[in-house]
Structure formats: C-alpha cells, structure tokens
C-alpha cells in the first residue's frame, strides 16, 4: 500500500574520522551478523537490519484511530567514518483478517505492519508528515535510538570537532506516476513524498538515506558558515571557524553514490530544483575563497605590509 520511514543524521561523536575497521566494530550491534562495507566512492558501513515489534496507532490526517501491528526494519550506518545515520522504515499493508495475529505471524514478514480494519492510503500518508501522536507509531524515536547506540559506543572519544544538531527526514513512498517532493520544515525536520512505479524495493530506502545524508551535509555547512560571520568578524577569526568544514565535511559530498540506477532520476530532479549540488558547490567555493583571501592577507602582513 505504502512505505513510511524516518532517517536521522548526525555528526559522529569522535575527534577525527574513524577507519573502516572501527566502523565495523562500532556497528556490530547484533552479534553473529556481519556489518556490510562498501569502499568506493566513499567508505560506507551499515549494520545488520534489526527488527522492532510494534502494535500501536498509525498516523492519520483525519485523526481516525487506525491500529497496526507488525515489525519495523532499522539500521545504523556510518559514511566516510564521519557521518552517522539511524534509519527505520516499514511497509504498511492491509491485514488478511480483522483479528490481531500472534507475533509469529508478524515475525515471518519482517518490515511489514499490517493494518487492522479499514484505511485510506492517502489519509495515512498525509498523517505521517505530521508529528506522531503520543501513542502512535513513532519511527523517529526508533531511528534516534539506533543513532544513540552508535554515538555511545566506547570506541568513540566523544570529542567531536564542532556541535551540530541532528536532522530528521521523514519519508513516504507510494506506487504510481514517478514524482518526488522534498520539503524543509523546521531547522531540523524534512519530509520527502515519493511516488515510484512498480513494487517497492529497499533501494527506495537507500535513496532516502542518501538524500538525508546530503541534506545534513548542506545544513551543517550552512551552520558553520553562519557561525563564521564572514565580513562581520576579523578575517583570521572567520578562517578559524571555517576550518572544521575543510577538515571534516567538504570531501563527503557524493550524491547518488549508493543509489540504484533506476532511482537516480529522482536525485537528478532534486538537483535541478531546488539544486542541492549547486548550493553545495557555491558554499564550498565560498569557504575556499575565504581561506584564499585570508592566506593572501596573512602573506602580505608577513612580508611587511606589501605595497608600501
């Protein structure tokens, strides 16, 4: 019927980036299952999928009381040894019967929540974009916990190079005529409404995680530039404040790196408008230009005032 998910993205709480081997150890949340790692074009490590059992109210724009039971699929990942994500999603399907089934039934369908009773797909999808009710399905809380598990690993030194808020990206995918809409809500909240042709595949979740990752990078870079107050503070001070961006963020931009070819058109459309890569590039240029200007000023100062 539809799939809903939420991805939380944050800065790994470590002074520097961590090597691939440490990524593996940190993500070993479930013993016995392997952490998957890909190395090109950027090191990406992802934990085994874990299931959370849920039996609760589902979101509804019309405030109807819809009950669902089943499991949510979640995972944690680390990109470039620097950015951490907690991601959860579940497929919402109509139940074959009106009665609540034993857990064995739901466990046989990992990542599926069955709706008990009548439901409209549109009502669910519209409701999901809003904050979940207190007793409702809260994928964000599950994703946040998967992010916490990584951040509290004893293998990390917790001396992150700068403070930055996590962002959350809530997404809904439905079948139909291909379309995507990305919306910025508050400082940390984003939603994606995606329509895909054919059956849902986990590649859609990968796409949303990739979008969340790049949106976080863009947000973090904007925050760092704002804090530097270019023009409002003396050059050397601004340069010092921009340095963390160069040390930790600028090399991480790899849009669509892990996105299935079938879905890359979605990224391309977002790159045309609103134009993620365009904004990123202009910010990167700004940071580098600032550093260049500062270097020139510094050199001029050292050579005793230059054109005297």
């Amino acid at each position: 019927m539809l799939v809903m998910g939420e991805v939380h993205t944050g800065l790994l709480q470590n002074s520097g980036e961590i090597p691939e081997s440490t990524c593996r150890d940190v993500l070993q949340l479930l013993s016995g299952e392997r952490v998957r790692v890909s190395r090109r074009p950027i090191v990406y490590a992802v934990s085994p999928d874990l299931l959370t059992g849920v039996d609760c109210r589902l979101p509804s724009a019309s405030q109807s009381r819809i009950r669902g039971a089943g499991t949510v699929l979640s995972r944690s990942s680390i990109t470039g040894g620097r950015v951490v994500q907690g991601s959860s999603f579940t497929r919402i399907e109509r139940s074959g019967s009106d009665r609540r089934q034993p857990w064995s039934h739901y466990l046989a369908r990992p990542g599926v929540v069955e709706v008990l009773g009548k439901v409209k797909s549109r009502d669910l999808a519209d409701g999901f974009a809003e904050d979940p009710p207190a007793d409702g399905l809260d994928l964000g809380a599950i994703s946040a916990r998967f992010l916490d598990v990584v951040q509290s690993s004893p293998l990390l030194d917790r001396r992150a190079p700068f403070k930055i808020a996590r962002t959350r990206l809530r997404w809904v995918a439905e079948e139909g005529e291909p379309a995507i809409r990305f919306t910025l809500h508050s400082e940390q909240m984003r939603t994606v409404r995606l329509v895909h042709t054919g059956e849902f595949t986990p590649a859609v979740a990968d796409l949303c995680e990739d979008l969340a990752l790049h949106d976080w990078l863009l947000t973090a870079l904007l925050v760092i530039i704002e804090r530097a107050r270019i023009g409002g503070t003396p050059g050397p001070e601004a340069a010092v404040k921009l340095a963390p961006a160069v040390d930790h963020l600028l090399h991480l931009w790899m849009p669509s790196a892990r996105v299935d070819d079938v879905l890359s058109a979605y990224w391309e459309s977002l790159d045309r408008r609103p134009g993620f890569t365009r904004q990123w590039q202009s910010l990167v240029d700004r940071v580098r230009d600032q550093l260049a200007v500062h270097t020139l000023a510094f050199l001029r100062e050292k050579s005793g005032g230059g054109a005297r």
Partner: peptide, 12 residues
C-alpha cells in the same frame, strides 16, 4: 543519560 548525551552533541 540519553537526554544529556543528545544535547551535548548539539549544544556548546
């Protein structure tokens, strides 16, 4: 503990 840990990530 969870609250302190999350806020420390975000705030100076």
């Amino acid at each position: 503990v969870q609250l302190f840990s999350r806020l420390d990530e975000e705030f100076d």
